[in-house]
Design a protein around this nucleic acid. Structure first.
Lengths: 224, 224
DNA sequence: ACGACGATAACACAGGTGTGCTAAAAAGGG
DNA sequence: CCCTTTTTAGCACACCTGTGTTATCGTCGT
């Protein structure tokens, strides 16, 4: 029997080379040859694992999707539901934000893939993965909001369905801002904004933690 | 004197052809020849107005930026500041959301440009326009929040700086969601979510309008 | 009418692109 | 050792790419 390599591992390796090319030079530079050079193989070797480049693109995109999904499920397996409801919510949602270099890199290529998927108007492999991830994040938001509601932690009069959408939009907006202006929207600021939003949904004053934002300037209505 | 054409108008026409190509086939298909074919001219004619394609790309991107900027200033010129502060805020922010087909098209190409700009890591023409637009929208959010604060409409204890960031992120997140799932995140839902967020910042119950969301299911804490 | 000049088209060239095909290399079992 | 099967590299082809360069066309003032 000849040399046997782990095909799946090889494919992931090539996909990660694709990520690096996309991040460095944009998706326009993601050709079979440049990716092969980046991965350190010949173009023929790459084509042995990916017969056409559309398959390479969609695989690389689904790998991003799988990565973030795995992080979420790993968090659950590790007892991510331990602690007070708001702590659990923050822990999960912070996992969806580009707080470190690795996740920022993932989000950058995800952004490129989203833009490319918009071209396949309505349907297509890329578009489907975008929808899957998008719905998955929405469902996560829904579960977390529902958990807060069942714990009786939410303030009165909230429209749960709308709050799920608002939270979901905020998460994606924050991620986008972190990608666009990482120097302005830093990791700590992301965390603080997320916490601020969750707190605004709660009925009681939240428990104070070490990075409580008491240093922020507060505005008070001028007395009349 | 020979035939004289309006160069700026021609450039805008070509840039719009670029937009159509990007929207239909993605930024990867945005070559000089495909754009020329889309615009109905020869490649040589296009290159007469844009010596190189990097200039074409950045011009097309800045045109998007100019379009949305013009809409905002046009709104101001038309007396956009008339009415109660919250009405003014909603009017301005809705202008930044892809509520109709034209603005959705603009956002789609804007998304592609943002992804491409991420490749020029840190600097570059595209990156600069992204930052300009991004800072412009943030400044708009800041002005609107400040207007609400000066009108005494905001609830107590808000951190203005953080609220500006949160509003800004929500706007971009909503726009992204409208682009990704237009069937789910419809124009009316966008408006409702934006209104919900603004209302959550106010100290008093907002004035009711015709599209008041009384039809939405409300959640009330179970009595203990 | 005609010439001058902006506008358009066409061609050339070197290189890149996806993809099919084929030959060489590598590696473990007999 | 050799042989079989997987893996890798290489080449070929037709086409597309950006960018020069050049020639033709159209239109206006004279």
């Amino acid at each position: 029997m000849p040399k046997i390599v782990d095909h799946d591992a090889r494919r992931e390796e090539i996909a990660q080379a694709l990520w690096r090319v996309v991040r460095r030079d944009g998706i326009r530079a993601a050709s079979v040859r440049t990716i092969a050079a980046e991965a350190g193989w010949s173009a023929g070797a790459v084509r042995y694992y990916f017969p056409d480049q559309d398959g390479l693109l969609s695989f690389a995109m689904e790998l991003v999707s799988r990565r973030v999904g795995d992080r979420i499920t790993a968090l659950t397996a590790r007892g991510g539901a331990k602690g007070s409801p708001t702590v659990v919510v923050l822990r999960y949602l912070e996992e969806a934000l580009p707080l470190d270099a690795e996740r920022k890199a993932e989000f950058d290529v995800w952004l490129a893939f989203m833009a490319q998927a918009q071209a396949e108007s309505g349907a297509g492999t890329l578009h489907d993965t975008v929808e899957t991830v998008h719905n998955g994040l929405r469902e996560l938001c829904a579960e977390l909001v529902n958990a807060l509601a069942e714990a009786g932690a939410l303030r009165d009069g909230l429209d749960l369905r709308l709050e799920v959408e608002r939270l979901h939009a905020l998460i994606d907006g924050l991620a986008l801002h972190a990608a666009i202006q990482p120097n302005h929207t830093t990791a700590t600021r992301l965390r603080r904004l997320l916490r601020l939003h969750i707190d605004s949904l709660l009925s009681e004053k939240p428990l104070q933690t070490k990075d409580f934002s008491s240093t922020e300037r507060q505005v008070r209505r001028k007395p009349d």
